[in-house]
């Protein structure tokens, strides 16, 4: 399958390991990712507070770039990108007046969005149908019952009216992937809570409490690692983990993997190629448990 690929700012910035491991995984799975190199940031819900006309225009432009390449599915690897581009796409498709107005902003650049694109997080792509079967068939290093705590966070689940892919009360896409890889998904209350990232600059203490609480919950439910579909969650859960430990007064030492990295390990890609050493919290125990 050929997919338009929208890596988002973080995978090209502070989480380069996500970018690289996604490509490695795609290669193994025979997915062709055509990167939309001219695409802009989704606005991350931050710019939306100032100017939604602008973020809608940027997003429509991204979709137009995919259409121009003859592609109908834009794959994201960030919950935030998904969480803002998906609802914007729904409005563009449903409201023709809105689409026409937004297109009027694009025409000078030679772009027009026709409304024929769907935007889909890699997690959703891999968790269903053919791709899931394909994934199962290509597992080389079965996770051997590794206890993995899926951390969905917020933007890929809520609000239902804007996303609606799965029930935020009982999401299952990551669980399906973990099972396909031979791992064991840990159920814990905080898996759909916020990691705290959006207010890490505004109110660091509160953000760290959120980070710490979620990781502690995973740990108390015997997770050996946390896996997340969102690089922003990853930033807080990994990079800020030490600070979070101090804030909540508990040892965590919880490896946090990007979803692409966990899939990559099971597909037999090396820890080095998946750039696991870039993490602040060592993933070595996970790697040795899997035998990668």
């Amino acid at each position: 399958m050929r997919y338009a690929f929208f890596p988002g700012c973080v995978a090209k910035g502070t989480c380069p390991e996500l970018y690289q491991s996604t490509y490695k995984v795609a290669e193994k799975l025979g997915m062709e990712l055509v990167e939309l190199t001219e695409a802009t940031c989704c606005g991350a819900g931050v710019m939306q507070a100032k100017n939604t006309e602008l973020t809608d225009a940027y997003t429509a432009r991204t979709f137009a770039l995919a259409e121009e390449k003859g592609l109908d599915t834009v794959v994201t690897i960030c919950s935030t990108c998904q969480g803002y581009m998906d609802p914007a796409n729904k409005t563009l498709k449903e409201d023709s007046e809105h689409l026409a107005r937004i297109n009027s902003h694009l025409s000078d650049g030679g772009h027009q969005y026709k409304g024929g694109v769907q935007v889909k997080h890699l997690m959703w792509v891999l968790s269903e149908g053919q791709e899931l079967e394909n994934l199962k068939g290509k597992v080389q290093k079965n996770l051997n019952g590794l206890k993995v705590a899926p951390f969905y966070g917020c933007q890929i689940l809520r609000p239902t009216y804007a996303l609606g892919y799965e029930d935020p009360e009982k999401p299952s896409s990551m669980e399906r992937i973990i099972a396909a890889l031979g791992g064991q998904a840990v159920d814990y209350r905080c898996k759909t809570r916020c990691c705290g990232f959006p207010i890490i600059l505004e109110n660091e203490k509160a953000a760290l409490r959120m980070t710490g609480r979620s990781l502690l919950d995973a740990k108390e439910n015997d997770a050996q690692c946390v896996v997340t579909p969102c690089p922003l969650c990853h930033l807080n859960l990994d990079i800020y983990q030490k600070k979070a430990e101090k804030e909540i007064g508990a040892k965590l030492n919880m490896p946090v993997l990007h979803l692409s990295q966990l899939v990559g390990l099971a597909l037999g890609i090396s820890a080095k190629e998946l750039q696991l050493p870039k993490h602040f919290v060592s993933s070595s125990q996970v790697v040795s448990a899997v035998g990668a």
Partner: peptide, 21 residues
Amino acid sequence: VGARHVLGFMESVGHSGQLDE
């Protein structure tokens, strides 16, 4: 901080197309 975050974000994306983290 929240407001400056938005303004800085806007400026960065508006200028280069993506965020300067």
